[in-house]
Amino acid sequence: METEPVVDGEIRNEPLWESVPLAPDLIQIKPSYGAPVSEKTEIRVAYSNTTFYVAVVCYDTEPNKIVVSDSRRDADLGDDDSFLFIVDTYNDQQNGFLFGTNAQGMEYDAQINNEGKGSLNANRQQGGVIGGTNINWDATWSVKTQLGDYGWSAEFAIPLRSLRFAAGEAKTWGLNFQRNISKNTEIAYWTSLPLGFDLKRLALAGKLTGLNLKNPGNLKLIPYALVRGINDQSVSPSEQELDAEVGMDVKYSITPSLTLDLTYNTDFAQVEVDDQQVNLDRFNLFFPVKTGFFPRKCRSVFGR
């Protein structure tokens, strides 16, 4: 795509998107296995040198019944009218990146490892990671939605620097789409899946071929400055206390699979606190490390 679209959720009247071919129709997995999706769904995919785009129009004959139950980032989309897609950027049929939204533009993203099953050695209480689905991963991307009498539409813009992939000519990515239609308790996929499987089953995903990709590079600088002043009327102005601190976090992708993280004078005050949990059994609790400057692994806290 030579011209970048304006990401505003407007799909139907956008000449740029009308020139992009439609993806084949979705197939239900429930409630009527193998039947076409009950509501018309138009999906288009495009990319530029810097961004991967997905546009979807979710037509609905009863738009007043569209359900939005949560607007928190990474909240469960299973009960909402929602749209999700997964990309297997290395085409290894095991790992990928999952993105989704509902009719109100909520952002959902996750890293998928081993088709969502995770490692056999992964601890069952690893915080923020359910099986092989890491919802602690928050990439930089955007999505805009639009509601109307036709239903709703969504426009995703995923910067390529937020993903990991191998650059080159004629590359292939694994790809699958999912639409949830709440009023019918309906789930439909682009690539039909057997009963009992879901979008994370990358071995059965479709293929997006002919991608000509350049390494976008990924350098992120996060500086900060803190100033503290104490106005003590009992001392002279020359003895007033004034403190200042500066620091910076640097993240740079050396290769698609190797990232350099540097930090100077780290501001730990910006790190999220742990969710309070009560542990009454003999198993350890695991909390994700939520800093932006170290690998997001987990640390354990022993139970009592």
Rank of each mutant, 00 (worst) to 15 (best):
T50V: 04
R73S: 11
V20P: 11
I86S: 10
E14T: 13
N134W: 04
G100F: 08
N121A: 00
D80A: 00
N113Y: 14
L16K: 07
I29K: 12
N218R: 12
R164Q: 13
G9A: 05
Y224V: 05
G247K: 12
M248F: 00
R179F: 03
D8E: 08
A55N: 06
L260V: 13
P24F: 01
Y252A: 14
R44E: 12
N134E: 15
K207C: 06
S238Q: 10
K117H: 00
L195G: 05
N121L: 10
Q270A: 15
L262Y: 01
G151A: 02
Q111W: 13
P288Q: 12
L226S: 07
D267Y: 12
P31Y: 03
S153Q: 08
G168P: 05
A225V: 09
L285V: 11
A55Q: 05
G303N: 03
R73D: 05
V56G: 02
C298M: 07
L204V: 01
P24N: 00
K251E: 15
L22W: 09
T145C: 06
I181Y: 10
A75P: 03
S71W: 08
P223V: 12
T101M: 14
L193A: 02
S69H: 02
P15E: 09
V227W: 08
G100M: 11
V54F: 04
D80R: 05
R44D: 09
T291N: 08
K290I: 14
L193W: 07
G128T: 00
P21A: 00
F287V: 12
V129Q: 14
N123R: 07
I135Y: 14
S182N: 09
F283W: 13
D275A: 06
W17R: 01
W141R: 03
F97G: 00
N212S: 06
V250Q: 10
E272W: 04
R282S: 13
V246F: 14
T61Y: 14
L98W: 14
T50L: 01
Y108S: 13
E241M: 02
S257Y: 04
D74P: 11
D198Q: 09
L84I: 01
D88G: 01
N176S: 09
T3Q: 02
K214N: 11
W17V: 12
N279Q: 12
Q233I: 13
N284Y: 06
S19C: 04
L226R: 08
Y59E: 01
L84Y: 03
P36N: 00
G174M: 05
V250H: 02
